[in-house]
Design a protein around this nucleic acid. Structure first.
Length: 522
DNA sequence: TGAAATGTTGGGGCG
DNA sequence: ACGCCCCAACATTTC
């Protein structure tokens, strides 16, 4: 332990002789409840040392699951926020660009030797490719005599902390969730969300020094220069309603708890309402920790228990459980982003004809089924799609069109701002019926009934498929059945202003049942 | 975190 | 008044 005399240096500023500690930010773009940051500050503050916060943009290292275009937009704004928040504490987020050349390892090594840093801290990630990369980096740094410490900053429990009686990974959600809750209750006494730092000293002379580093990718750059924003600007109106970053995440959670949480059980299935938490992007980038959400929702529900928020809170925390479950599965079954968990699905008879054409109709929101098209257009314009609608459009692609779930997963990956490998994989395998705790093969969503049930007035459809806006509610989910007079009154010529259904659902349903049955027996 | 087919029941119109 | 039928409403089964 370092002796107390250097404490005065901690309060006055940086001790230039003390070795700095590097905190490598990845998907933990926050300051509160940030274990790596907290421990790094704790470990070096008593010696008057300082922390160097670092972000490295190295998308190729995550291939084939490098962040998609939409995800990069969110990252841009989230990083901008983090950099500003760190600056407000008196420090500077050091950003490096390894997208063209260099690597995370080279940057970390170079930074250690340039600054005399003796330790590197980070919070773990769980994507298979990233795990492999991080292992190599950890080994290489240790071989150089550096200390590496890694932490859990993005899950309630580590994927290896839970196992069935047989010692195997869980493959069914309900028992997983039961075990998870039990364990969390047992942990509750020890855990406490970690405070955000009040200040972070930074040696000003370092900026100058690093800017002369060779090669170029060893020099810190700016968020803007990472080029994360697309050349063509997206729907800016929607972007205004986003608040990427830690503050936005916290505010959104509070807003959700005080409004929609109570009605969450019903409200979460209504895409035209603000019935969901909208925390997925914030969670993916680690702008808030699941532990903080867990604690806040539980204490909120307790304080408002008389108000009947309990049921909503329970249902919501269950969704946090699905997020945990998806990471548990991805960790234990690392091949699942591309391969079905259930082997027999390798031989599924997907359709072969017109696939490109049909895929294009789906992605553009021109299937002729309003609820599907509304969802796909919402996704394209905003990078977000309501969860209920995600299930509907996914079921349509996989079961009505018999297009492999992997193609849908890839589209979602590129277009969702909350694209997350674990959750995307779980969701698509669930829909296709080939994953853990998957939908039975005969569960086929009827896009008309789903629309009528969850968008009863058609407000969601009217918003995203404006050419149908004037159609009577009775026909809004099945315009091809509307009388000619109603279509005319709404200014719609079917097949011209809006497409006829690209496939008849009842025919498609029978076709899918046959295909899935064949798989079952064959 | 389905949908459709099939079965059952009970109210009400009507001969 | 009664039985018959229709059918909505709900329950069960099947895919």
């Amino acid at each position: 332990m370092t002796e107390k005399k250097s404490q005065s240096k901690m309060t006055t500023g940086v001790n230039p002789d003390a070795a700095p500690a590097i905190v490598w930010f990845r998907q933990d773009l926050r300051l509160a409840d940030q274990p790596a940051l907290y421990r790094a500050l704790e470990d070096c503050s008593s010696g008057g040392g300082h922390v160097l916060p670092v972000f490295i943009w190295a998308p190729e290292e995550e291939a084939p699951w490098a962040p998609g275009a939409a995800s990069r937009v969110w990252l841009h704004f989230s990083l901008t926020r983090l950099a500003a928040d760190i600056k407000a504490l008196g420090s500077q987020l050091l950003i490096f660009d390894c997208s063209a050349r260099g690597s995370s390892l080279e940057v970390l090594e170079g930074l250690c030797s340039a600054t005399g840093a003796g330790s590197v801290y980070w919070n773990r990630r769980y994507e298979p490719v990233v795990i492999e990369r991080d292992k190599k980096i950890k080994t290489a740094l240790k071989e150089k005599g550096l200390t590496v410490q890694t932490f859990n900053g993005s899950l309630l429990l580590e994927p290896w902390e839970l196992a069935t009686q047989e010692g195997k990974p869980y493959q069914v959600f309900t028992p997983f969730w039961r075990a998870c809750q039990l364990k969390l209750q047992a942990n509750q006494l020890q855990h406490r969300p970690l405070e955000a730092p009040g200040k972070m000293p930074f040696p000003s002379e370092l900026t100058q020094k690093l800017s002369q580093q060779k090669p170029g990718y060893m020099q810190p750059t700016t968020v803007d220069d990472l080029g994360l924003l697309p050349a063509i600007k997206w729907d800016t109106g929607i972007r205004e309603s986003w608040q990427p970053g830690e503050k936005g995440a916290t505010e959104q959670l509070e807003k959700f708890m005080s409004s929609a949480l109570k009605q969450y059980k019903e409200g979460r299935d209504r895409p035209e309402l603000e019935g969901v938490s909208r925390m997925s992007q914030h969670l993916h980038f680690g702008e808030i920790s699941p532990q903080m959400i867990w604690d806040r929702v539980q204490s909120h529900a307790r304080s408002a228990a008389a108000n009947g928020t309990g049921a909503g809170a329970e249902a919501y925390l269950r969704e946090l459980g699905w997020r945990e479950f998806s990471h548990h599965l991805l960790y234990h079954f690392p091949q699942t982003p591309t391969n079905p968990l259930r082997q027999q699905f390798e031989n599924f008879p997907w359709s072969k004809d017109n696939r490109d054409q049909e895929m294009a109709a789906w992605t553009r929101g021109l299937t002729g089924y309003p609820i599907v098209d509304a969802g796909m257009r919402e996704l394209w314009h905003t990078g977000i799609m309501h969860n209920r609608v995600r299930m509907i459009v996914a079921s349509f692609l996989v079961k009505d069109l018999l297009i492999p779930w992997q193609e849908g997963a890839r589209w979602f990956w590129d277009t969702l701002v909350d694209a997350d490998l674990a959750q995307n994989t779980l969701g698509w395998q669930w829909t296709a019926g080939c994953g853990a705790d998957a939908a039975p093969y005969f569960r086929i969503f009827n896009p008309i009934l789903q629309g009528e049930k969850f968008d009863p007035d058609g407000n969601y459809v009217r918003r995203w498929v404006p050419e149908l806006a004037k159609l009577k509610s009775k026909w809004i989910h099945k315009p091809w059945l509307a009388p000619e007079a109603d279509l005319k009154a709404a200014g719609i010529k079917l097949g011209d202003d809006y497409p006829a259904p690209m496939v008849d659902h009842s025919y498609a349903r029978d076709r899918a049942l046959t295909a899935f049955k064949q798989l079952k027996t064959g």
